[in-house]
Computed example of a mutant assay.
Amino acid sequence: MNGIGLTLRALHHGERKLEKDLLAAAERHHTEHEFHHVATDLAGWSHEHRVRLAETGHHYGLDLASPHGQPSPGIMAALREVAADTLARRPETGLLLLHDLHDLYLAASGNSLYWEMLAQVAQAGRDTRLLELASDCHPQTLRQIRWANTMIKTLSPQLLTSL
């Protein structure tokens, strides 16, 4: 497998992880309605990226398609929801939210680096398929990063001083 294939595979894995993490954080903090809805929407972007990466991967001889499609919530989601309801207004919940935002920021940033690498190799190799993919998806990943960063900037002062 060449470097493009390795990067596509790593990015597919990173988008799957980010989607899963966004959905888990949305469930964990479902009492924070704005966070819950935006995180769920952003997870949809990562899901779309995974689908497009899988389609593009076929061109490079990769099978990145997930046999399961959307992750199912399962029992862990129900447990997270109960825990979120129980802890809803405790200060520790704010720290957990900041921790989740930290992890989401880092995951999206890692994906952004892979999108940038794909865009650069696409430009160098005049690969219009790869360049179109990176040009379409990378801006959404940058938006995921900005959202997490904005949430951290907004919530940190209040949450950290209320402890």
Results as ranks from 00 to 15, higher is better:
residue 40 T to K: 13
residue 163 L to P: 07
residue 59 H to S: 04
residue 132 E to L: 06
residue 26 A to F: 14
residue 61 G to L: 04
residue 32 E to I: 08
residue 129 R to P: 05
residue 106 L to N: 09
residue 163 L to F: 12
residue 146 R to Y: 04
residue 136 D to S: 01
residue 126 R to F: 07
residue 150 T to D: 11
residue 53 L to Q: 11
residue 93 T to L: 12
residue 15 E to I: 00
residue 35 F to T: 15
residue 147 W to C: 04
residue 66 S to Y: 03
residue 141 T to L: 02
residue 140 Q to P: 06
residue 93 T to F: 02
residue 22 L to A: 00
residue 16 R to A: 11
residue 157 P to W: 02
residue 108 A to E: 03
residue 159 L to D: 00
residue 49 H to V: 06
residue 27 E to M: 09
residue 94 G to T: 02
residue 60 Y to P: 06
residue 109 S to G: 11
residue 78 A to C: 10
residue 24 A to Y: 02
residue 65 A to R: 09
residue 37 H to I: 07
residue 144 Q to T: 01
residue 108 A to K: 04
residue 47 H to E: 01
residue 80 R to I: 06
residue 54 A to V: 10
residue 26 A to H: 13
residue 131 L to Q: 02
residue 22 L to V: 02
residue 51 V to G: 05
residue 48 E to Q: 11
residue 48 E to W: 04
residue 147 W to M: 09
residue 48 E to S: 08
residue 142 L to T: 09
residue 80 R to M: 12
residue 86 T to M: 07
residue 20 K to L: 03
residue 143 R to I: 11
residue 29 H to P: 12
residue 99 H to G: 02
residue 8 L to D: 02
residue 156 S to W: 10
residue 8 L to A: 04
residue 1 M to G: 08
residue 76 M to D: 04
residue 82 V to D: 10
residue 23 L to N: 11
residue 54 A to M: 05
residue 68 H to Q: 10
residue 114 Y to D: 15
residue 125 G to H: 01
residue 112 S to N: 14
residue 36 H to R: 15
residue 46 S to N: 11
residue 130 L to D: 03
